[in-house]
Amino acid sequence: MAVPSQNVSIPPISDEDFLKFREYFYRKTGIMFQDNKRYFVDKRIQSQMESGGFRNFRQYFDRVCFQSDGVELQALVNAMTVNETYFYREEYQLKCLVQSILPEVVKNMHSGETIKIWSMPCSTGEEPYSIAFYLLEHWSRVDDFNIEIVASDIDTEVLRKAKLGLYADRAVQYVSQETVGKYMTMTRDGKFQVIDDLRKSIKFTQTNIIDAIEDRFYRGFDVVFCRNLLIYFDDLSRREAAEAIFTALSPGGFVCLGHSESMSRISSLFELRKFPEAIVYQKPA
């Protein structure tokens, strides 16, 4: 006879608890959940409570706030962040990278020097691998330089997946078969995995963009891809993120945002650059 699982009844999240959680999560991550996300937030908190065996919100929230190693908080961050993406998303920016941005970046560089690119947030890795594929396939000077790609996210679970580099065919539907064949292998269950050499070429790190202590080692980048992150932030966090990107970039470095995001509305730190392929932002040289 099967032993029934212990059913812990999870109480609903009260308005007061929701507000308390929202303020805390915002202070920790810069992500502000509006009231219309209430259902999404409640469900994920309750799911975390259930899997951890917590009987009430207070007990759970105390653990999130005061656990010394931050494991519960990290699990909550992982549950709350959105990670839906695919290869070659907003491809026009990748075109812009190889046709306009990089030629400008290397104008005063010598062969053998290093170009640094930061993909942040990198989610499950589609963006940094897309950048790598694109450079290898479409930038004629790719062999002239050392290219460092650093890929970061606040969510440790997506980073684990990113390092694994394993994707369903839907994720690679916009990549040519030829490119997929060169840089991915098909697994027995019909998924595609990025080849070892390429996976090892990208440095995956966990960081919180609005935490000045965590991000202070991210410096000297020539290009930052920060797409579809700022839309989850309120104005204050957006400004802080812009400042973090500014300090991470070398003078003259570029930042690419998502198509619905505009740095001009956030900060005056950057200059607008209109290239034929895309509008990007540049740190003054």
Binding site: A132, I147, E148, I149, Q206, T207, F217
Partner: peptide
């Protein structure tokens, strides 16, 4: 493969304690 592994200088795994 021209892409290189990012150096530890550019992004350490963990920031130093406060």
């Amino acid at each position: 493969m021209p892409l290189i592994k990012a150096s530890n200088v550019s992004a350490r795994k963990k920031a130093q304690p406060v």
